[in-house]
Amino acid sequence: MSKAKAKAKQAKGRLKESAGSAMDNRKMQAEGSSERIAGMSEEMPAKAGDKTKRAKGGH
């Protein structure tokens, strides 16, 4: 997954989490939190790939 898609997933999760909090809906909060964390874990390989490219001299 690309870094942009992972960031979008994190943002969607944050919004869902906030909406769940505002509506006092614990299930929605948990789903948002789960989605946000999934986005963070999907972003990690993309970040590592970027660092590897920079270390090898590529941009």
Rank of each mutant, 00 (worst) to 15 (best):
R26F: 03
K16I: 13
G49Y: 08
G32Y: 04
I37T: 08
K51Q: 06
R26L: 15
P45W: 08
G20L: 12
S34K: 03
A30F: 09
Q29T: 08
M44L: 14
A8T: 15
K3F: 15
A6N: 04
M23F: 07
R36H: 02
S41T: 15
M44N: 03
A48P: 00
E31D: 14
S18P: 01
E35T: 13
A8L: 10
K53E: 01
D50L: 05
Q29K: 02
I37A: 09
E42P: 02
S34V: 11
S18Q: 14
S2G: 14
S21L: 10
A11Q: 14
M40F: 03
P45S: 07
A30G: 07
M40S: 07
I37N: 07
S33N: 13
K7F: 11
I37Y: 10
S2N: 15
K12M: 05
A30K: 06
S33T: 13
M40P: 00
S41R: 05
E42H: 10
T52K: 12
K51M: 07
K12T: 15
K7E: 09
K16N: 05
A11D: 14
K5L: 15
M40H: 00
G39F: 00
A22L: 07
P45T: 13
D24A: 11
A30D: 15
A48Q: 04
G20D: 00
R36N: 12
A30V: 05
A48T: 05
G20N: 00
D24S: 08
G32M: 08
R36C: 02
G20K: 03
M44Y: 14
K47N: 00
A6D: 03
S18Y: 00
E31L: 11
E31A: 13
M40C: 02
E17R: 04
T52H: 10
S41P: 00
Q10D: 11
E43F: 13
S2A: 13
Q29R: 08
K9V: 07
D50Y: 03
K5F: 11
E31I: 09
K53S: 08
L15N: 05
E31M: 10
L15K: 12
A11V: 08
E31F: 00
K12I: 12
S18W: 10
G39V: 11
I37V: 15
Q10P: 04
I37L: 13
S41Q: 01
G13E: 05
G13V: 12
M44P: 03
A48N: 07
A8P: 03
K3G: 10
S33V: 08
N25R: 05
E35C: 01
Q10R: 06
A46D: 02
E42Y: 00
M44I: 14
M40D: 02
R54A: 04
A19M: 15
A48S: 06
L15Y: 09
L15I: 11
G13Q: 09
K51V: 12
D50M: 08
K53W: 08
A19G: 04
K12S: 09
G39T: 01
E31Q: 09
M28D: 06
A30Q: 11
E17C: 09
A48I: 13
K12C: 05
R14N: 11
G39W: 04
T52A: 15
Q29N: 10
D24F: 02
A30S: 09
G32I: 14
K3W: 10
K47Y: 10
E35N: 04
R36T: 10
R54E: 13
K27N: 06
